[in-house]
């Protein structure tokens, strides 16, 4: 009886895993198991290869282990002394050589891929150049060729290679879009890292910070939006266009002194996240998801999310650099309304 239990209990996690596997591999816009672009596809290919090889190893070991445990269990009162085997050269050579062969099978495509994925597109005129700067706890995306700066949402055309040059303005972060490409760290002090990816399918993909960067590391999400070329061009043009301040002079004044001292809208400048077109982004602060059909605590309409954020940014993202701005409820409402209406059609 004991033996059966042994078997069952050792298999249980495996079975649990199978069930989970069948129940899906996560969201298509977030999971490395559901690649949506060629780079993630290549990395997924390596994963599949290594998982296959490793599953083989695991199965062999488990099979031998199970057999041995069942077959050679000591009977009660058994005083016999088994043959004391010193070793077996043939066997030992086999289990040295087979792993080496398996490793070669994995090693060769690994090396190929290491060099393939390290290709430098930063000088490629056809690629979209993006300078990613990570901040505690938001992402800045600068398109030097287009002369555009935006934050939190990386808009890209679906027909080009996206060439990333990543660095940080403060501590280490890591730029990761699981369904499109693996991650690259953002280093300080002129130590710029490059990577590239493509997103041929139009859609929105979730990005994450993958290096502990302080209290709100967990909330340092961003989005990548792949659109067709024409939309992309419209978006670039709209980003560069000047944006009108609110008609209400008092509101315009409140906005200028309280927000635009750090943030930029339209052709303005500022160190904080650029707010141009914030009304048409998928989320506020990268993680308050904008939707008219809110299901979760972090969801709401653009306006609701903006209000929530402006009222107490530290409650939403602990430790962020915005700090609480002294504004009346009406002012918060008015500013949120104004920002929510900053939409870009593209």
């Amino acid at each position: 009886m004991m033996n059966r239990w042994h078997v069952l209990k050792r298999l249980m996690p495996l079975l649990a895993g199978m069930v989970l596997l069948l129940s899906g591999c996560g969201r298509a816009d977030l999971s490395a198991l559901r690649p949506q672009g060629p780079v993630a596809e290549e990395q997924f290919g390596l994963m599949k290869l290594s998982i296959t090889i490793m599953a083989f190893v695991v199965i062999v070991v488990f099979a031998i282990a199970l057999y041995v445990i069942i077959r050679f269990k000591r009977r009660p009162g058994d005083k016999s002394v088994p043959v004391q085997v010193e070793g077996n050269h043939k066997l030992e050579i086999i289990w040295t050589v087979i792993p080496i062969i398996l490793l070669v099978i994995l090693g060769v495509p690994t090396i190929k891929s290491v060099f393939g994925l390290a290709e430098d597109y930063t000088k490629d005129p056809n690629a979209i150049q993006v300078k990613v700067t990570a901040h505690q706890y938001w992402w800045e995306f600068e398109y030097p060729k287009e002369g555009v700066k935006t934050a939190q949402e990386l808009i890209i055309p679906n027909d080009a290679v996206i060439s990333i040059e990543a660095k940080t303005a403060d501590v280490l972060h890591s730029f990761w879009i699981p369904s499109l490409a693996g991650k690259i760290d953002t280093n300080p002090g002129g130590n710029v890292n490059t990577m590239y990816f493509k997103a041929p399918k139009e859609g929105v993909y979730l990005g994450k910070c993958a290096e502990l960067c302080g209290p709100s590391h967990a909330l340092m999400d961003f989005k990548v939006k792949s659109v067709d070329r024409a939309s992309y061009d419209r978006w670039v043009a709209a980003q560069k266009a000047p944006v009108a301040l609110p008609a209400d002079a008092q509101l315009a004044d409140t906005l200028t002194t309280n927000c635009l001292s750090c943030h930029a809208i339209g052709d303005g400048t500022g160190w904080a996240p650029n707010l141009t077109g914030i009304g048409s982004r998928g989320s506020v602060a990268g993680m308050l998801v904008n939707t008219d059909d809110a299901q979760y605590a972090n969801e709401g309409t653009v306006e609701e999310n903006l209000e929530k954020w402006i009222k107490d940014p530290d409650k939403v993202k602990p430790g962020n650099k915005m700090g609480k701005i002294e504004l009346s409820d009406e002012e918060v409402k008015a500013i949120s309304k104004y920002l929510a209406d900053l939409k870009i059609d593209y």
Partner: peptide
């Protein structure tokens, strides 16, 4: 032990970074 850590392989592959103090709802 296996309950705790076996599923974490999949969490990682599904896009959950380590060292996060919380995660948003609806991410699976």
């Amino acid at each position: 032990f296996h309950l705790t850590f076996f599923v974490q392989h999949f969490l990682g592959l599904m896009g959950m970074p380590r060292r996060i103090y919380t995660y948003l709802d609806g991410l699976g």
